[in-house]
């Protein structure tokens, strides 16, 4: 069985010589289909660098990262962009919706880059908004939505392209506890009912508690890797998605 994500001994070094910074110093990690991983650690622990590499926004200096069997390390910018386009969905702390663009249009954006035809694009974007419970807000602009709603639109946008992994970078960082709980419940629900694989960075233990597995980084290394809940067996290998 091949895992969804196979990371073997990756290093990331910024600068060189005296000013060399080892952001990642030999990290190995596998993520299986249907898992929900929380990545924790203090600032400067390398968790953001790790997420950037996991999200194909950056490449490791050394080591191997295979996403669905494809080695990422040697790919150029454009191929990485195509991988993000087809395999990954992003949810950010600051929501990062396009301003003055409706919720529906925001959700259509990844499909626009995938070259999906207009009618299908609209239908799938509406479906994604429906899955996060915002179908009735489709034509609202981001500034007409609450923070929690904006984050749900962002989750819909990440879902819409049917990615292999959704990467969430402190998704509840800008929300109050009630909204945070709503978002986490939504992520858990997507993970459980729709078997979507999620990797989430957080520094709040309360939020990490929702995940199936918690990985803690320190000084560019994984210090603990604890499973809190098992992945249900029916989740494995059933999700389909086009490999690149």
């Amino acid at each position: 069985m091949t895992g969804l994500v196979e990371i073997r001994g990756i290093h990331k070094v910024y600068g060189h010589g005296e000013t060399e910074v080892r952001a990642l110093d030999g990290v190995s990690l596998d993520i299986e289909e249907g898992d929900f991983v929380a990545v924790m650690g203090p600032s400067g622990s390398g968790k953001s660098t790790f997420m950037n590499i996991l999200g194909c926004l950056d490449v490791p200096t050394a080591g191997s990262y295979r996403l669905r069997g494809v080695e990422i390390g040697k790919l150029d910018r454009d191929t990485l962009a195509l991988l993000r386009r087809h395999q990954l969905g992003f949810v950010f702390q600051g929501f990062n919706l396009l301003a003055r663009t409706t919720a529906l249009e925001n959700c259509e954006l990844p499909l626009l880059y995938q070259g999906v035809a207009r009618t299908e694009r609209r239908a799938r974007a509406l479906d994604a908004l429906d899955r996060v419970g915002l179908a009735n807000r489709a034509n609202h602009l981001p500034n007409e939505l609450s923070g929690g709603q904006q984050q749900r639109v962002a989750i819909a946008r990440a879902l819409v392209s049917r990615p292999a992994v959704i990467l969430a970078d402190e998704p509840t960082g800008n929300l109050d506890s009630t909204r945070s709980e709503e978002i986490m419940k939504l992520l858990v629900e997507l993970n459980e009912t729709q078997r979507i694989t999620i990797a989430m960075v957080t520094h709040e233990p309360d939020m990490a508690a929702y995940a199936r597995r918690v990985v803690v980084f320190k000084d560019g290394r994984v210090v603990t890797d604890e499973r809190q809940r098992a992945i249900p067996p029916d989740a494995r290998g059933e999700r389909q998605g086009a490999a690149l």
């Binding site: 454009d78 087809h86 954006l109 880059y113």
Partner: peptide
């Protein structure tokens, strides 16, 4: 700049 970052994260190539 931020919009460009978002678009790139979503999968826009430099050419796009």
């Amino acid at each position: 700049t931020r919009e460009i970052g978002i678009r790139m994260a979503i999968g826009a190539r430099a050419g796009d």
